[in-house]
Design a protein around this nucleic acid. Sequence first.
DNA 1: GTACTGACAGATATTGAAATCTGTCAGTCG
DNA 2: CGACTGACAGATTTCAATATCTGTCAGTAC
Lengths: 194, 194
Amino acid sequence: MNDEALTPERILEAAEDVLRRYGPAKATVVDVSRALGVSHGSVYRHFPSKAALRDAVVERWLARSGSPLAKIAAEKGKAAKRLRRWFDTLIAGKRERALGDPELFATYLALAKEAREVVKAYVDVRFAELETLIAEGVAAGEFRRVNAKSAAQVVWDATTRFHNPAHASEWARPDIDDAFDDLWKLLMQGLAAA
Amino acid sequence: MNDEALTPERILEAAEDVLRRYGPAKATVVDVSRALGVSHGSVYRHFPSKAALRDAVVERWLARSGSPLAKIAAEKGKAAKRLRRWFDTLIAGKRERALGDPELFATYLALAKEAREVVKAYVDVRFAELETLIAEGVAAGEFRRVNAKSAAQVVWDATTRFHNPAHASEWARPDIDDAFDDLWKLLMQGLAAA
DNA sequence: GTACTGACAGATATTGAAATCTGTCAGTCG
DNA sequence: CGACTGACAGATTTCAATATCTGTCAGTAC
């Protein structure tokens, strides 16, 4: 079917295809190996278990979602501006995925629920970016002298409704952007240097 | 089994019992009527459908949860103090139910998901209380001259993680109260009169 | 020796027949 | 007459048999 060497990369690609096509409930390791034209035993030579394979798929997906955010966090410029852009990017990206292809989004959500460790690592990275952005803002005199970690937690918690997938069903509301903007104004009022 | 007249009230009590015992997946109308010693046809003389019966159970439950909040909203005194007490009561109540009897909480959550209308009415009432509290604070000069409705939305959204049942699994964390307090300080910073 | 296969045991999922449930209503009881 | 029953049709759920899947490993091929 395909003579190229069987690599984790190729398996992940096939696994993503199969998950997209059949959904998380029906997709099996046998399906993945069938798509690759190999026996399912071969897949197990690269991934120790079905769960590990799914974790890797989630990891790949999260890496793709996270890279624009990492880029913004690493840029130069006003921290306040970048902070806002970071959130806009986070929220717009999730919303696009959730509303653009709800079925696929639901698939990834279901996988993510089983891949707690992987998701935790992703959130930790995002949280560190947030903390850095706030610390930079404090250092530049843009923000009040808050504790960056606590402030990051506050901003993350306060914006939960707008980025946590548990609230995805609310993201289609027409007033959602206004609601975020109102919230953001209040948060910045509390955070901005006096 | 019981000679008292069959009333909606008695049926609701039995329905709650049955739901508590069997959970939302297994509880049937036949179970409820068995518990009451009547035929299930009799239950249908008081509730047009199983869904209506469940809606009524949820309504009763929400009325119980909401009454302390209504009381606080109606009290006299500093709006800022009452606003904080209102949230503390809201959050403590939910947390107690969620952590005290997780199985029962899960049962009610499952029912609530099917009773959107009833839940919406409950949330609307809570939201109106919030709006009133903020409007009173503005009128008393405690808060800046914000639009009460928008501000209520902001405060509700920002505190979502702490009162929305979708986040119940996070309520057991030891740092949850600190996180809420930090968030509250920032919100009040933005809301308090200059 | 390395990459892969395919048969296997135990676990999980699917299926279709049987049981139970929901909602209705003609009929019974007091 | 009004409150309740119980039999009924169609929808839904349960259960047990059957099929498929997961993960392992001895064996094949190169």
